[in-house]
Design a protein around this nucleic acid. Structure first.
Lengths: 349, 349
DNA sequence: CTGAAAGCGCTAACAC
DNA sequence: GTGTTAGCGCTTTCAG
């Protein structure tokens, strides 16, 4: 068909047969066809059969766009993965990806479709575009980053939106997230029980979720009456090299440490490799606990101790929350329980 | 959610303002608004400005569904990730996920949107549903598996479809894939150069891509005049435990080996862990090369040697191919170049 | 330059 | 039971 890039609808599209066609072939009106197809009881059993048979044999399929327009209905929701325009750190973290899978499952179960898009984290209101132009009835955002304000504005504007992240003060939008405080506390308490006392924290505390994990870290220390040592906190990005850089920084500071609590598994893995290169053994010299429990954590060598995020539950919870929102309900934010998974990187005392 | 599960469009949706509203407010007809919004030259400069201004201040956004219906146009394409209903191996392999990211990028660049769905690999023609009902103008399928026939039927039926996978005889659909033969050859040739002679192959050769990688393995051996040893071929699934099972099987067979070529990185990683547990050192006792070069390959310990799949290029190629198909062009299948990445798991001779 | 009117493919009163 | 009719929100001839 067209050379016209504006209209890539294709020859095929143009000839798709429609209700009128099968109506004509069946010798009935389109109304009857419509009713037959929708299982209305207002059609003669025989007619229905004939129509259905015809439709099936001709592989006729109703045009959802037209139906949606007419019915003012819509069963697709937008899923947005923000990405950092500078680093393109986007879809690379397996954790986000598994979340996507979980969402896809939950959505499918409810009979919804998913329009996936990635938007620059700096201009987050682009996330609402598919809602604004009626393509989707609501938006699920994977990754809160530090765009609390923009998210609030979207919510204030009436966009049904659910975001995966931490619950913050003055929050107008609905978040579903893991219990980061408990997660952090469990991880660090475990390290402490193993006899570790100088536990480093790797993560970017400007991100709400990470900040809460850090708070858990502090809480666990406080529980043992240990004062936090600022030098043991290393800011680290979620980027691939984040862990290595953090280790380098920590070594540069010359502060002694016997454990690391990393705010993501990726960070933990890359940190472990860097530790090894620096001649430190894991877990003998340095115990490590990650966060997320991505699938690869158990494949790692040694298998990575980590805090499991409730991915499957998250998908369901987010979808449920969004559908409720769309329905006009007031939906409270929720924290999902989090669980420590002890493997080998934190073994021994 | 709603009392009426059939209509989760919500209160919010109901009040969206439309063209007629801004037409009334601007004191013009909807035709004029439409023209102004579409940048037609048939509108008075002043009128246009007024309309545009009004629309912006009211945050009016055109209803794409209605526009599409009227224009018979559509700029969304379907991306389908088949999953195995039994194993739910679906979205778990990071390689597929990175492909998703790459597709999202390529699509966005071209101004297309992506409708993501997962379908049971056994009933692959469900993949065409969004096409049949006009939601998307074509479909990209990530993962060919062994459903050649079903794919052929879809293509024969006129569904514009591009699949990531291997090129097969009698193929009616368009595939974009890595050069698996070369990939396999490079990997094994590298192992041979390192002095390894008894190289095991892990993978499910019933999958076309894996079969081709295996053919490359044989080709490399043949290049050195080495006859393939059937006992060194172990069928392994892409599932998490695949590598471990394959190692167990290999050990059970009691056949000596000094290297493993695994048909995916995940397989390689899980195999390496199993080898270690069996007391074998990697790479000293057994060298390992994986396939895909997922991001985590370089984080692994030791960093994993592997064959890199051209993920970014793949996204662009698939999108380009699909758009051409949609345009009615005859599109040839393509193999993208593949590259050996030597890291530590295959070090030394 | 602008508006009136027809219609994209479908559904739902409202007649018959 | 079934057909007729009037739109869903938009674009586009076709007249002015």
């Amino acid at each position: 068909m067209s050379k016209n890039p504006k209209d890539p609808s294709g020859a095929a599209a143009r000839q798709r047969l429609q209700m009128a066609d099968i109506a004509r072939l069946a010798g009935v009106s389109t109304s009857t066809v419509s009713r037959a197809l929708s299982g209305s009881s207002l059609v003669n059993e025989e007619t229905r059969k004939r129509v259905l048979e015809l439709a099936r044999s001709l592989k006729y399929s109703i045009n959802i766009g037209a139906q949606n327009l007419r019915l003012k209905q819509n069963r697709t929701i937008g899923v947005v993965v923000p990405y950092d325009a500078h680093t393109r750190q986007h879809l690379s973290d397996p954790f986000f990806l598994s979340m996507l899978g979980s969402l896809a499952d939950a959505l499918t179960e409810q009979g919804f479709e998913m329009l996936l898009s990635r938007v620059d984290a700096e201009t987050l209101d682009a996330a609402a575009r598919p809602f604004d132009n009626g393509r989707v009835i609501g938006v699920i955002l994977i990754g809160q980053w530090r765009h609390h304000e923009q998210l609030n504005q979207l919510a204030a504007r009436g966009v049904p939106i659910v975001v995966w992240g931490a619950q913050l003060p003055q929050q107008l939008y609905c978040t579903i997230g893991g219990d980061n405080l408990t997660g952090g506390r469990l991880a660090v308490a475990h390290l402490l029980e193993g006899g570790r006392r100088r536990i480093a924290f790797f993560g970017d505390a400007k991100l709400p979720e990470v900040e809460q994990r850090q708070a858990g870290y502090h809480a666990a220390l406080a529980g043992r009456g240990i004062a936090p040592e600022p030098l043991l906190h290393v800011s680290a990005s979620f980027l691939p090299q984040g862990g290595a850089e953090a280790v380098a920084e920590l070594l540069r500071r010359g502060v002694p440490f016997d454990a690391v609590f990393a705010s993501s598994d990726l960070l933990a893995m890359s940190a472990i490799n860097a530790l090894r290169q620096a001649g430190l053994r894991v877990p003998e010299d340095v115990a490590v606990v990650g966060y997320d429990d991505i699938e690869l954590a158990s494949y790692f060598h040694p298998p990575l101790s980590t805090v499991r995020q409730p991915v499957r539950a998250a998908g369901h919870a987010m979808v449920a929350a969004l559908l409720a929102l769309v329905d006009g309900a007031a939906v409270a934010s929720r924290q999902l329980p989090t669980e420590l998974v002890v493997r080998d990187t934190s073994a021994g005392a």
